[in-house]
């Protein structure tokens, strides 16, 4: 399917914006990306649409980021995998307000998403509703509660947790 057609199709379901990246990498291959935004309420139908259109899109990863005024999760899927030189990476961006950071899980569709959702949960403090296993994944158990390492606001790592000194015997070390 043509990239723009795919984008239109997804935009119709999500009601959001989107764009296509199509760049040349070498003589034969191109880098194809489709980015589409979706709402917290209908992003699951966008993903379901992908599952319908392509049997088993491969979940690549979930990016969790703090955009200042809101949080964002990017669900990235590889479609057309297994077809030489035809793979497209489809990324669905979902905004989450900071005062109510809840989002539904996709582990019913992709059981492997558990690991990415657990990571997103502890890194920026979103609350994934319906996630079967809500324990921490990467950061240790004795790390303070309510501190999320990748948050850029007051919930991020407080200054006293940063390591200030580096073992640099030269003067004027940037880390001091």
């Amino acid at each position: 399917m043509d990239l723009n057609q795919l984008l239109e199709e997804l935009k119709r379901v999500s009601g959001g914006e989107g764009f296509v990246q199509d760049q040349e990498m070498s003589k034969t291959s191109r880098r194809r990306r489709v980015w589409v935004t979706a709402d917290r309420r209908n992003f699951r139908s966008v993903i379901l649409k992908l599952v319908e259109m392509y049997t088993y899109p491969q979940l690549s990863f979930i990016v969790a980021q703090d955009l200042g005024d809101r949080l964002q999760l990017i669900y990235s899927f590889e479609v057309n995998s297994g077809k030489p030189l035809e793979a497209v990476e489809v990324s669905v961006k979902v905004d989450i307000p900071k005062d109510d950071p809840r989002i539904a899980t996709i582990t019913d569709m992709f059981p492997g998403a558990e690991v990415y959702e657990r990571e997103a949960q502890e890194m920026i403090g979103v609350d994934v509703v319906g996630l079967p296993d809500k324990r921490r994944l990467l950061i240790p158990e004795d790390f303070p509660e309510g501190v999320f390492p990748l948050r850029l606001d007051e919930k991020g790592i407080p200054p006293e947790l940063w390591k200030k000194k580096s073992p640099h015997p030269l003067e004027g070390d940037g880390n001091e």
């Binding site: 990498m25 070498s26 194809r32 690549s60 057309n80 995998s81 297994g82 030189l85 992709f110 059981p111």
Partner: peptide, 30 residues
Amino acid sequence: LRLCLQGPMARMCGIRKDVRQDEGVAAYGD
């Protein structure tokens, strides 16, 4: 398939999936 396994772990299950083939990064496509 549903867990989205990667690399040799997917290919051992018969899922013909490889970024080198699917996207042809670098000169793999050529």
